[in-house]
Design a protein around this nucleic acid. Structure first.
Length: 234
DNA sequence: GGAGGGGGCTCCGTTACGTCA
DNA sequence: AGTGACGTAACGGAGCCCCCT
């Protein structure tokens, strides 16, 4: 059951994408190109344990193609070609890409691997040193040390970075939430204070200038009877 | 020197599997 | 035993950069 799903999975990937690019009228974006390329190298080649020469992929079943129709279609040729490529994988590459863990030797693509504590610990340690695997060599070495495929190490770092980012976002959100709460509280408090002040001392216009001057220097001009500060008297 | 292909890497969103309550 | 939630390994797509031709 598991094996069947695996085969379908591997086949699907190859065919859907190859057909997609073939069906396109020649203008494939570089992104698509890259994706197709990667598909070939990571999914197809790494699934070299596929042994059935022609299993009708799930995607063709879903298209309503019969086994015979599929075998006669141009896609079948591409499909077989891809499988040949996969099987023609060199022994050394095979070694590098082999899972290396004792419990899995079926080469299943999506069978989830649970990393051991030791593996996780070492990966965490490396992640603390550097959150990216800079040189390809480093990835290969780490993969070798952990008895994992380089792709698995790569994926682990990707996911780990994503988790870190998510956590940081959560922390930032919490910080902003609290800050917002503080500002709201401050605002309420200030509004209350303002209302209190208004209630106690009604707001009034400032007194005229002459009322702000010390009374001692205010004199009344004998001729005009106006209030002066006396400076003009000399 | 510029264009284009290829390889490698990252990020993002999603899927699917394993575990646990 | 069944199930839903959750953590996370794995995947696919897209973009960028660098190197080579």
């Amino acid at each position: 059951m598991v094996e069947e799903a695996v085969l379908d999975d591997a086949c699907n990937t190859v065919l859907v994408l190859r057909l997609g690019s073939a069906g396109d009228t020649g203008s494939i974006s570089s992104g698509h190109r890259d994706a197709l390329r990667r598909k070939d190298s990571s999914s197809v080649k790494s699934e070299s344990s596929v042994s059935n020469p022609m299993v009708l992929p799930q995607s063709f079943l879903s298209l309503g193609l019969s086994d015979k129709e599929f075998r006669q279609s141009p896609a079948a040729a591409i499909f077989t070609e891809a499988k040949k490529e996969a099987e023609a994988e060199s022994e050394e590459t095979e070694k590098i890409w082999s899972r290396g863990s004792d419990e899995d030797d079926e080469g299943s693509s999506r069978k989830k691997l649970r990393l051991t504590k030791e593996q996780s610990a070492l990966l965490e340690e490396r992640f603390k040193e550097n959150s990216t695997l800079n040189p390809q060599k480093q990835k290969l070495a780490l993969a070798k040390q952990l008895k994992l495929r380089p792709r698995q190490v790569e994926v682990w770092f990707q996911n780990r970075r994503a988790r870190t980012k998510l956590k940081q976002t959560e922390v930032d959100c919490e910080f902003l939430r609290r800050w917002c709460e503080t500002l709201t509280d401050d605002n309420r408090r200030l509004q209350r204070e303002l209302q209190d002040l208004k209630a106690v001392k009604p707001f009034s216009a400032p007194p005229p200038l002459y009322m702000q001057l010390p009374p001692a220097i205010l004199k009344v001009c004998p001729s005009c009877q106006r209030a002066t500060d006396g400076s003009a008297e000399q």
